[in-house]
Structures are given as structure tokens and as C-alpha cells.
């Protein structure tokens, strides 16, 4: 009985993953639909909501995290090790924290919004209504959300990393008197293509997974709007879970 349940749950997971994969593939296939006015409007609205509106908070978080990290490192390794501080800052911020924090902020802000919005539309028959107008919901509702959320995740990661590094080295230069150049040398020597591509791949993948999960959970709401809170909770937890899993996998692939 237990084995049967385990097999069933493995099969369910595989089916769910293939469903997410299909959503992502279909989003890329439908990219040319961005030429259509209303689709473009949905896309820009999502970019504005998920990317631009979050930018200010993301930069503040980045600055604070950068300051915290660099203060800790400086306390640990001492004032004279500017190159080492720069290296650790790059490793921690670019490799790990940038994509991870951007993903967490996107999850907190957009996953709940998208799954609740699509869930409510589905429960109230609005998605069926859109189909009756001859409009493909995959093109009009799903593709712009997946692409916009992914681009927003990449954009937020970049700004977070920039703010964290600039904030960090400014604080150490001002308060500990470490020359600015010492940091920049350390940062520039440790900033390889591998670091940057790991960060990019992570943020891209996180964005794709988060958006696919939120769309999928939203589309699963049917019948009653009381199912919306369940869908948003599921979407949030699953997104976090996938982000940490993929973070581990990509780190293993790139750096081991």
C-alpha cells in the first residue's frame, strides 16, 4: 500500500513537472504573439508590476545585504584584505544571494498576485469567456506573464547585485578606510564569466519556474473562489521549494 502511494506520488510529480515544462515551452512558442496589442499590454503591465514597482525595494534590500555581508567579512578577515573581501562579496552576492533574493521577492510579490488573479478569472468563467471570443488564453494570459516574470527576475537580480556590491564597498571605504580601488581589483579579478553566467542561468530558471508554477496553480482553480487561497499558498510554497532545489543543482553544475 505504501509503495503504491509512493509510486503514485512520484508519477504525480513527474506529470506536474511535465505540465510546467509544457507551459514554459508553449510560452516561448507563443512569443510572436507579443506583436498583438492587447498581449503586449498584458506583458508591459506584468513587467511594471513585477519588475519596475519592485525595483526601489530591491535596491534597498541589496544595499542593506551588501553592507551586512561586507561588515561581517571585514570583521572576520581584517581591514587589509581588500582583494579577499571583494572576492567573497562576488562569490556570495553574484553566485548565491542575488538570484535567490530576487526570486524570493518575486515570489512574495508576484506569485500570489498571479495565482490569485488567474484563479479568480477561472472560477468566474472569465477564461472560458475569453476563449469564446476566439482568444487563446495561452497567448493572451499565460505567455506574457511567464516572459515578463522571467525578465523581471533577471532584472531584479542585476539591480540587487549592483546595489549590494556598491553599497558594500562604499560602506567599507567610508567607515573602515579601505581604498575603493582595492575592492574593485578584488571584485574584477574574481568576476569571471562563470560567476556571471551562473547568476544569469539561476535568475532565468527561477523566473521561468516561479511564473509557470503560479500560472499552473491559478489555472487549476475551478468552481469556487474559496479555492483561491489554497492555490496561492500552494504556488508560493512550490515556488520556494523549486527555487532552492534548482539553486542547489545549478551551484553543483557550475562550481563543483
Amino acid at each position: 500500500m505504501k509503495i503504491k502511494r509512493i509510486i503514485e506520488s512520484i508519477l504525480d510529480t513527474i506529470l506536474y513537472l511535465s505540465e510546467l515544462f509544457n507551459l514554459i515551452i508553449s510560452a516561448f512558442k507563443n512569443l510572436p504573439s507579443l506583436r498583438i496589442g492587447p498581449v503586449r499590454t498584458v506583458f508591459f503591465r506584468q513587467i511594471y508590476f513585477a519588475g519596475i514597482e519592485t525595483l526601489g525595494k530591491m535596491v534597498i534590500i541589496g544595499l542593506l545585504i551588501g553592507i551586512v555581508i561586507i561588515s561581517q567579512i571585514t570583521s572576520l578577515v581584517g581591514v587589509g584584505s581588500g582583494a579577499l573581501i571583494g572576492k567573497i562579496l562576488v562569490w556570495v552576492v553574484i553566485r548565491e544571494l542575488g538570484p535567490l533574493f530576487a526570486a524570493i521577492v518575486v515570489i512574495a510579490r508576484s506569485v500570489t498576485a498571479i495565482s490569485a488573479e488567474l484563479g479568480s478569472m477561472n472560477a468566474q468563467g472569465e477564461i472560458a469567456g475569453i476563449e469564446m471570443l476566439g482568444i487563446d488564453p495561452q497567448r493572451y494570459l499565460i505567455m506574457p506573464r511567464i516572459i515578463a516574470l522571467t525578465l523581471s527576475a533577471v532584472m531584479l537580480t542585476f539591480y540587487f547585485e549592483l546595489a549590494a556590491i556598491l553599497g558594500g564597498i562604499t560602506v567599507t571605504s567610508v567607515f573602515w578606510g579601505i581604498p575603493f580601488e582595492q575592492h574593485t581589483t578584488g571584485i574584477l579579478t574574481s568576476l569571471t564569466i562563470s560567476e556571471l553566467s551562473a547568476s544569469l542561468v539561476k535568475s532565468l530558471l527561477f523566473g521561468l519556474v516561479i511564473s509557470a508554477v503560479s500560472c499552473s496553480q491559478g489555472l487549476k482553480v475551478s468552481g469556487s473562489i474559496t479555492r483561491i487561497p489554497q492555490a496561492t499558498t500552494k504556488a508560493t510554497m512550490q515556488s520556494l521549494f523549486f527555487v532552492f532545489i534548482f539553486d542547489g543543482i545549478i551551484t553543483l553544475i557550475f562550481f563543483i
Binding site: I36, G37, P38, E117, E126, G129, M132, L133, G134, Y140
Partner: peptide
């Protein structure tokens, strides 16, 4: 549709123009 079939996050004019501007 009896309930209008409007999309709740679009303004009334955007709803009315939606199929036309899409197609």
C-alpha cells in the same frame, strides 16, 4: 453572455475593444 463575460481587470472600454484589437 448573461453576465456580460467581461474581464474584471480590464476597464469597460478595454473589454469592449479586446476582441477587435486582438484579432
Amino acid at each position: 453572455p448573461n453576465n456580460g463575460g467581461l474581464v474584471s481587470n480590464l476597464k469597460v472600454w478595454e473589454n469592449i475593444m479586446l476582441p477587435l484589437s486582438y484579432h
